[in-house]
Design a protein around this nucleic acid. Structure first.
Length: 354
DNA sequence: AAAATGATCAACCGCCCTTAG
DNA sequence: TCTAAGGGCGGTTGATCATTT
């Protein structure tokens, strides 16, 4: 069933790449550059499918890849970005210069998620005492992901089996939720989802994205129709017409999705939030001032602390721009995330009080 | 010293989205 | 407008190495 993928064709190598294969790929990319991955097989005789070539390049061969342990700052950043974005590894990687989505994903699963479950990493590479990623940092991270939110509401699933699967997912992806404080409701509770205490809205949004990631029927920019309602894996129908609630929820997720995918400064709501006095430190950075755009699509980086850098890139999902900026200020990013934790609320999207 | 267990990470799989024809 | 192919992404697997018993 289904069409045969390029990588499932006979005669292609699988498994670990050899130095010879690496060289063939690098030689090709040196001449032709990235893209047109499927041409590589035809033009070089390399017995790898295009996807495999791309992966090898993106995750291993690129010269700008940073190797070695994640610093405490990077770890903090991952945790906070994950809190906002869920398992959107490529988006998170886009904010970590030199790190790949695969690397971050692995790191999350092997280290951070375990910490969140109270099982600290045993670092085989042995981090030097006093380094930012040492014990103190771990403790800080542990506390940073503790729940500040007493009530979380996530969309419902239909069966207890599915609930349990998602319990697991949420316990990993959303450390601030525990099974006991999740309220599983039916789809008819969408209204309740939206009227959740504003301080928890970030978590709700992220939880929604997490749910999406486990269910191909749920789109991040929530579907215009109830795709999930008719899905065997999707959310249960409440049995009554809640279309207005759903529409509001759709609007909310739509806006959230747009913001994640785009230049933040396009969103006046976000702009307004950051213009508040208590965020005056960041006001300049998010005042909607667009910078020059270079020919490669990367905007200029003469100035700046994190918030501006976060906002200035119009390419959230790609590493192209961010990787060029090796002086990325993690502390600024972390403080930004701190300062805005409470601000990623319905307010920004005009949903408060729905 | 050897076996068992755990941790790490490169690579694969399969799905979805985009785009070219 | 439709369809097939390519590209991108998140989830998962399995080989390898380190640590523990």
């Amino acid at each position: 069933m289904g069409r045969k993928t390029e990588c499932s064709k006979d005669g292609l190598n699988k498994g670990a790449w050899t130095p010879v294969e690496d060289k063939m790929l690098l030689d090709y990319l040196k001449i032709r550059g990235e893209g047109k991955w499927s041409n590589i097989v035809r033009e070089t005789g390399l017995k790898r499918c295009g996807k495999s070539c791309r992966l090898r390049w993106m995750n291993y061969l690129r010269p700008d890849i940073k190797r070695g342990n994640f610093s405490g700052d990077e770890e903090d950043l991952i945790i906070r970005m994950h809190k906002l974005l869920g398992n959107r590894w490529s988006l998170i990687a886009g904010r970590l210069p030199g790190r790949t989505d695969n690397e971050i994903k692995n790191y999350w699963h092997t280290t951070i998620a375990k910490k969140a479950r109270g099982k600290p990493k045993v670092d085989r590479k042995q981090i030097e005492p006093g380094s930012p990623s040492g014990a103190a940092s771990s403790l800080k991270n542990q506390s940073s992901i503790e729940s500040q939110c007493t009530t979380g509401v996530v969309a419902a699933t239909t069966t207890s089996q599915e609930n349990s699967a998602q319990d697991h997912q949420l316990s990993v992806a959303m450390p601030q939720f525990t099974t006991s404080n999740l309220q599983y409701g039916a789809a008819s509770n969408f209204k309740n989802q939206i009227t959740i205490e504003s301080q928890c809205t970030t978590e709700v949004a992220a939880a929604a994205s997490t749910l999406q990631s486990t269910d191909s029927n749920l789109q991040y920019d929530m579907p215009k129709t109830y795709e999930f309602e008719s899905s065997s894996k999707g959310l249960a129908s409440g049995g009554e017409d809640n279309s207005s609630d759903i529409m509001m929820y759709n609007d909310y997720m739509d806006e959230f999705s747009k913001i994640l995918a785009s230049d933040f400064t396009e969103f006046s709501g976000i702009h307004d939030i950051f213009s508040n006095d208590h965020h005056s430190n960041n006001t300049d950075a998010v005042n909607g001032d667009h910078h020059g755009v270079s020919s490669d699509g990367c905007k200029s980086r003469e100035t700046g602390e994190f918030p501006e850098k976060l906002l200035e890139s119009d390419n959230w999902s790609g590493n192209k721009c961010v990787l060029a900026d090796q002086d990325f200020d993690f502390m600024s990013l972390l403080s930004f995330l701190d300062s805005t934790d409470d601000e990623w609320t319905g307010d920004a999207f005009g949903t408060k009080g729905l």
